[in-house]
Amino acid sequence: MCSCQQHSTTTSAAAPAPGGAISFHVEDMTCGHCAGTIKQAIEGKIPGTSVTADPGSKLVSVEGSADIAAIRSAITAAGYTPSAELVG
């Protein structure tokens, strides 16, 4: 979990997941720093992926991989908790 103390209290609308993307709800993603950490973790562990992480909607969308276990593992290794169910 992030300790940057720069958490935003505003929320933004979720952008629709791009076609073919796998989306996860990550409740403990609270700010842009969290989103960047998750994005780096997934893209670093699974080359060829493109990640969109929106702390306002708490959604992480991943294109370029269908390996759900590897994506969850990367999010967990970064210190965050992906939901048990996929979104959308």
Rank of each mutant, 00 (worst) to 15 (best):
residue 14 A to V: 05
residue 79 G to I: 06
residue 30 T to H: 08
residue 80 Y to I: 02
residue 78 A to I: 11
residue 39 K to L: 03
residue 83 S to N: 08
residue 16 P to L: 09
residue 7 H to F: 12
residue 11 T to I: 13
residue 13 A to C: 09
residue 15 A to E: 15
residue 47 P to N: 05
residue 31 C to T: 01
residue 12 S to G: 14
residue 33 H to L: 06
residue 25 H to W: 11
residue 58 K to Q: 13
residue 16 P to M: 12
residue 34 C to A: 12
residue 17 A to S: 15
residue 48 G to I: 08
residue 28 D to Q: 14
residue 52 T to P: 01
residue 69 A to T: 13
residue 20 G to L: 10
residue 85 E to H: 13
residue 24 F to E: 02
residue 56 G to C: 02
residue 61 S to A: 14
residue 26 V to N: 04
residue 16 P to R: 10
residue 9 T to N: 03
residue 26 V to W: 00
residue 79 G to M: 09
residue 69 A to H: 11
residue 4 C to S: 05
residue 23 S to V: 05
residue 52 T to E: 08
residue 10 T to W: 03
residue 2 C to R: 04
residue 65 S to R: 02
residue 71 I to A: 05
residue 37 T to D: 02
residue 45 K to F: 01
residue 28 D to C: 04
residue 67 D to F: 11
residue 59 L to T: 02
residue 31 C to R: 01
residue 82 P to E: 10
residue 73 S to H: 13
residue 19 G to K: 14
residue 38 I to V: 14
residue 57 S to Q: 07
residue 12 S to M: 13
residue 53 A to M: 04
residue 6 Q to H: 11
residue 64 G to K: 05
residue 5 Q to Y: 11
residue 87 V to P: 00
residue 18 P to C: 07
residue 38 I to G: 01
residue 60 V to L: 09
residue 26 V to Q: 05
residue 60 V to I: 15
residue 56 G to V: 01
residue 71 I to T: 07
residue 22 I to E: 07
residue 54 D to N: 14
residue 39 K to P: 02
residue 64 G to I: 02
residue 87 V to R: 14
residue 76 T to D: 09
residue 20 G to F: 11
residue 79 G to Y: 06
residue 32 G to V: 10
residue 46 I to K: 04
residue 60 V to M: 02
residue 34 C to N: 01
residue 43 E to P: 06
residue 77 A to M: 10
residue 5 Q to G: 09
residue 80 Y to H: 05
residue 7 H to V: 11
residue 74 A to I: 07
residue 62 V to W: 06
residue 75 I to C: 05
residue 30 T to Y: 04
residue 60 V to G: 01
residue 68 I to M: 08
residue 14 A to H: 03
residue 86 L to G: 06
residue 2 C to Q: 09
residue 74 A to Q: 06
residue 82 P to I: 08
residue 2 C to F: 06
